[in-house]
Computed example of a mutant assay.
Amino acid sequence: MTDYSVEATGLSKDFGGFKAVDGVSLQVPSGSIYGVLGPNGAGKTTSLRMTLGIIDPDAGQSRLLGGHAPRAVRHRIGYLPEERGLYPGMKAREAIAFMGALRGLDWREGRRRAAAFMGELGLERVVDEKIRKMSKGMAQMIQLIGSIVHAPDLIVLDEPFSGLDPVNQERLEMLVRRERDRGATILFSTHVMAHAERLCDRIAIIARSQRRFEGSVDDARALLPMQVRYTPRGDADAPAIAALLPAGAERRGDAWYFPVDDTAIEPLLARITASGFGVAGLSIARPGLHDAFVHIVRQVDAAFDADATSDAVEEAAA
């Protein structure tokens, strides 16, 4: 046994000459919530499908739940694909039980668990409603419950928040935490940073078909300097304040905004205190995961564009 529920190494996949995934590796600690983040088309879905053995990689390998080949432990996995699909004529309870039965769960136990899950989530009013009568978001919640009704050890969710309203997003977050507390490992993909920031123990960021970052949410946020919002007292002299603050400080209304390195915070506070301008307001905060994500992806895009320009120049010169 290992400390990782997912160990994917060097996964690569080409589709018609397009490198969809290029050497992606993932190590997901057991009992954790792990997010795979990236822009649309970055390679997240293909990486997850190779990890689960749904499609074969051109290179690399994946081992799950203690070092097993993915297909050998498929009954211990719950998977919500990006493409949603339920039988429209089935009632919600039966649809959930049916999905559980496909993974070896007794039908009657599946129906009992379906009702329990739906009651816990406040969905008991639709337990016997047919899928065709449900909204897209509600049907998605039913499929999600069906993906975990058999109490899997590993839960893989591909863009699970897409199409859900805020109420159902909150229900899904509660469900993810509940399953983690039960002992399951959750691996999900998303391009919405707020969910990852609230839920994830660790994240990987994929951009341009490669993994560009791996670590905790705090590790990602630490890639950017602190952001300061400072408001002096009274009608302070703007040029004098600008000279006091770091280069590039921007005034918006009465406040000034600027980044500052961790080591420069205390000297900055000492200068402000000694200046006599006073402090009507002051906040110092680390940028959020959204800012870190944009920073990483823009760096990758800039490097890609620079390489493309260099190649074009070389071809023209030849």
Rank of each mutant, 00 (worst) to 15 (best):
G100F: 05
K133W: 08
Q140L: 01
S135G: 11
R125Y: 08
E109F: 12
R113C: 00
A116S: 15
M134Y: 13
S135K: 03
R111K: 15
E129Y: 09
E109P: 15
E124F: 12
G119M: 01
L121E: 06
F117W: 03
R108A: 10
D128Q: 00
G104T: 00
Q143E: 09
G122W: 04
M141Y: 06
L102N: 13
R111A: 12
D106P: 14
G100N: 01
I142P: 06
K133D: 15
G119K: 03
G119Y: 02
F117A: 00
S135A: 11
V126C: 13
R112Q: 10
A115H: 09
G137K: 01
K133N: 14
G100H: 10
W107P: 12
A115F: 00
G137W: 06
R112S: 02
L105S: 05
E120K: 08
R113K: 13
R111D: 05
I142A: 00
M118Q: 07
R111G: 06
A115E: 12
M138K: 12
I142M: 07
E124G: 13
L105G: 11
R108N: 15
W107I: 12
R103G: 09
V126T: 10
D106K: 15
G110V: 02
E109G: 12
E124V: 02
K136G: 08
V127H: 03
V127W: 05
A116Y: 06
G122V: 08
I142S: 01
A116V: 03
R103M: 05
D128A: 07
R112T: 15
M141L: 09
G119H: 12
M118T: 02
G137V: 06
A116K: 15
K136I: 01
I131K: 10
A116M: 02
E129C: 11
A139P: 14
